[in-house]
Design a protein around this nucleic acid. Structure first.
Lengths: 226, 226, 226, 226
DNA sequence: GATGAATGAGACTTCATTCAT
DNA sequence: TATGAATGAAGTCTCATTCAT
């Protein structure tokens, strides 16, 4: 197992299309091109400062075409979030269901999967964006809270519950708190990544994967059923 | 010494005005009220999302008055930065010049001063704001880089140089790197403070002053001339 | 006679097609389906508010197909007008030419034909539409004026002239005025029909055919050559 | 009494301002100028076809200024309706309260007031506009229904009730129906007025005030308590 | 100095129309 | 012939900035 856990990198729901007639291929490719351009620009400039026309231009289409595929700038953003973040969840959930190893292994695979699919990619910038601008776009804030945060927490909740149910973890701890503890280092990495490039922040040398591994090991140390 | 180092809290350049006739006082107070309102709103909503009129309203004046004192929204922001961050530098520089203790003590006082004047105040949000929005406002980015980051680094550079010159610190290390190492925990606190309230970031219990003390002690441990 | 006068209801220029192979039939039916959909929507929502795509959808074809048959939305509207209003004129003209009865009978048959083919159908809404929106679409206004109003008036003119020529009507009246007098009740019915459903207009019980009959009889009373 | 009933023609809530400093006067005059321009254009071209910028231009101001006074095109329309139609209601209501004559006289004065303040003015076009375009702007439709139609009906309801209560009118009739009967000729005039100028509608000579008088007399004939 | 009315560039969004397939 | 993806002009609305008073 597990290879798959971490390896469906990008291209959620994208199919090789080299056999389709060109027009058709174009049609199917458009949303992807637009989503890619939008991800770039949203992460680069923020939501408010990204102009719809610029997204279209970068995707090589006209302004009108963008609105052909996405009803509004906010819907475009939601699609970017689904494509790059919450779209991974169902797959991760399946992986988890069919996983045979220990729950500790599972948590490490989660970390690896997250890093490879989100942490190390531009998708990571979306989290930072929501922190900066969320308050100005309540609809997006609600969407992100529900579709990314809550849903993500649910995913983790099940894993910790599995650990408890199988007797691997102590049963006397609040599972929600465990989730928060587990998630904290991921959030830290998200911030750290996007704080760096800009305003003169010094190196703060850090190997993210090693960092995550350490954090999880520490957590697991405290979780082990005696 | 030192009390002054940490205690010029707010109101840089503001004079107690309770003795002036009311009309006069109001007039002189205007820019201060505007700067306070602007700080609040910039930190709360970001630079782009803060409307000039709202700043004026919160300061109890009209939009026109704002532009009477500040040529543009960007200039207003610069003034806020000067008032709340770089405005401290000359004073800190003087403190440093006249300081009689060890350089290690000096660094601890720096940390304390920073925390009390910036870290614990709204000014802290400006750093986060520059990280989020800096890229969209190159002029501000340049200004902040020069007036806050470079100037701050110069300040620290002189302190470390003093330590080396006085034989307190090892002389075989790159002083710039030392500055970066020293500054990193401050940046971390800045991020940590502004990451919390919003999108589901968990508590991450942390006593900032103790955290800074520890970080500096660790650094000093490695710096001590043998 | 006369049956024909009143009975070519809809489907001007439409041919029974049940014997053709399906593909062919569809092809030829296209414009008719589009015209029907367009009539519905124009009457329902007005000219400006009717979107071309919606017309196409309701006709079960794509937007492109609509523009294959009609060069523009305005041309589509003109075609609707021809199909449903002015398209009747040639036929009515022929009826008139070959009609053997009195001119008074003729006028009553006109009223009946108008009511059955226009007044009682959706076509009636086109008149109201031109009253509401005509001013915003000068090209349509001109077209309607010429093709529907002027041409219709010509038709009536000939009838009244026939009455005069045949000594049935007084010869000392301005024929144009007679036409206007005759047409007024038709306009009234057009307005009345489309004013009702909406903004609180009360029932105003009215039997349109009886109303027309009465109006014409009154007119004829004044027209009779002594 | 009664003069006032019919004579507050236009200028609801407008005060002679020749004594105010020019700037102030300007400020207060703007909304009125914009409302006048908007009334003209809405009646002339309809709601959808009227561009905000055109309204501003005709009022001699810029696009931005319009939105300074009216939050949206729909709000502008509502303000036009209030200024020209429902704004009269409170005054009419007071007139009615303090009126000493018979209810029949009252109804005639209503008709006169309506004709002078609405029927004979551009305000009359608003009714026609709502009939044509209301369906496309549900929010306006609701507003108009509540603020103009329902409120107007309430006004009339009280009058008829007064007639019944004072024994002037038969008590065995549904008062709502009476209101509808009374209102019908007003609606007819509204339509009639706006049907004429455009698509070649013939003269249909009609003296509106005489028409209203006749209609009301007929109604009163049927209403008289025996 | 202070005001706040006025401006207009610029953003999002709609939709008739085109055109490659 | 039929499609439907693509376009871009045009419309509504926002807001930093100006300026007469």
């Amino acid at each position: 197992m597990s290879a798959a856990f971490a390896a469906n990198s990008h291209a959620i729901g994208q199919i090789p299309q080299n056999l389709l007639p060109k027009r058709e291929r174009r049609k199917d490719a458009r949303p992807g091109e637009l989503l890619a351009a939008a991800l770039d620009l949203f992460v680069e400039k923020g939501f408010a400062a990204t102009r719809a026309e610029e997204v279209a231009q970068r995707a090589g289409v006209s302004k009108g075409t963008l609105f052909l595929y996405f009803a509004s700038k906010e819907e475009l953003f939601k699609a970017v979030v689904r494509e790059n973040i919450s779209g991974h969840y169902p797959h991760w959930h399946e992986e988890m269901q069919s996983f045979g190893g220990t729950t500790a292994e599972m948590l490490h695979l989660c970390a690896q999967g997250w890093w490879e699919n989100i942490g190390a990619t531009k998708a990571c910038g979306i989290g930072k964006l929501m922190m900066s601008e969320g308050a100005n776009f309540p609809d997006l804030q609600r969407f992100y809270q529900a579709e990314v945060i809550e849903a993500g927490n649910q995913l983790m909740l099940r894993i910790f519950q599995r650990g408890i149910d199988r007797g691997e973890f102590r049963a006397d701890l609040n599972v929600n708190h465990l989730v928060h503890l587990f998630v904290a280092p991921f959030l830290f990495l998200m911030i750290w990544k996007h704080a760096s490039p800009q305003a003169g922040i010094p190196t703060l040398q850090l190997d993210p994967k090693a960092f995550l591994t350490t954090q999880i090991d520490v957590l697991l140390g405290g979780l082990q059923a005696r």
